[in-house]
Simulated assay, not measured.
Amino acid sequence: MKEVLKFLTDNPTFYIATVDGDKPRVRPFGFVMEYEGRLYFCTNNQKNVYRQLKENPYFEVSTASPDGKWMRLTGKAVFNSTYAAKAKALEVMPSLKKMYSADDTIFEVFYVEDGEAVFCSMTGESKTVKL
């Protein structure tokens, strides 16, 4: 998991894909953290991405580094919007405090269950990491 977290934090704009009905939807994200041994992301429950993940929790994350390497992470979103998890997110990324608080009812955090990351490069290298 540390390798996945490092790649995402080193390349801080990554893209999360969900399904909306029968259509793919992709949007940029920029928050990730490790909490209680799991990889977490956050969102707002007023957004389409939240609704889409509640309807179909399977998602994929993709990002690339400037040196031509990329990673795809697949998994299932499990929401754990406890006060403690939200407080940790705000500690990890203090700029989120401009939008949310740990008591905020629209602030949601979720972790990756059954995650698998595939690291690739233009040279054909490939490595799979289970979360």
Rank of each mutant, 00 (worst) to 15 (best):
K2W: 04
L5E: 08
L5I: 13
K6N: 12
F7K: 09
F7Q: 11
F7R: 06
F7H: 09
L8I: 07
T9M: 05
N11Q: 15
N11M: 08
P12E: 10
F14I: 01
V19N: 14
V19H: 08
D20F: 05
D20V: 07
G21Y: 09
D22W: 08
D22T: 14
R25T: 13
F29E: 07
G30Y: 00
V32A: 04
V32P: 01
Y35S: 08
E36A: 11
G37V: 08
R38Q: 12
L39A: 07
L39N: 02
Y40E: 09
Y40C: 06
C42A: 07
C42K: 02
T43I: 05
N44S: 15
N44I: 10
N44P: 08
N45W: 07
N48I: 02
Q52E: 12
Q52M: 02
L53R: 08
K54H: 12
E55N: 14
N56G: 04
N56P: 03
P57H: 06
Y58P: 01
Y58L: 02
Y58S: 11
F59T: 05
E60Q: 13
V61F: 05
S62D: 00
S62I: 00
T63Y: 11
T63G: 10
P66T: 12
P66H: 14
P66I: 12
D67T: 04
K69S: 09
W70E: 08
W70T: 04
L73A: 09
G75D: 03
G75W: 01
G75H: 01
V78C: 14
V78M: 11
F79C: 07
F79R: 09
F79Y: 09
N80R: 13
S81Q: 14
S81R: 11
T82W: 09
A84D: 07
A85G: 06
A87F: 02
A87G: 12
K88G: 02
K88Y: 07
K88N: 03
L90E: 11
L90H: 11
E91T: 15
V92L: 00
M93R: 15
P94R: 04
S95G: 06
S95M: 10
M99T: 10
Y100H: 07
Y100D: 12
Y100F: 15
Y100W: 15
S101P: 15
A102G: 11
A102M: 09
D104K: 15
D104C: 14
T105G: 13
I106N: 15
I106Q: 11
E108T: 13
V109Y: 06
F110W: 02
F110I: 03
F110C: 02
F110K: 02
Y111R: 03
V112R: 01
V112N: 01
G115F: 03
E116A: 13
E116Y: 08
E116R: 15
A117V: 09
A117L: 06
V118D: 03
F119C: 04
C120M: 10
C120L: 07
T123N: 04
G124I: 03
E125D: 03
S126V: 06
S126Y: 00
K127N: 02
K127P: 05
T128E: 11
V129T: 11
V129M: 05
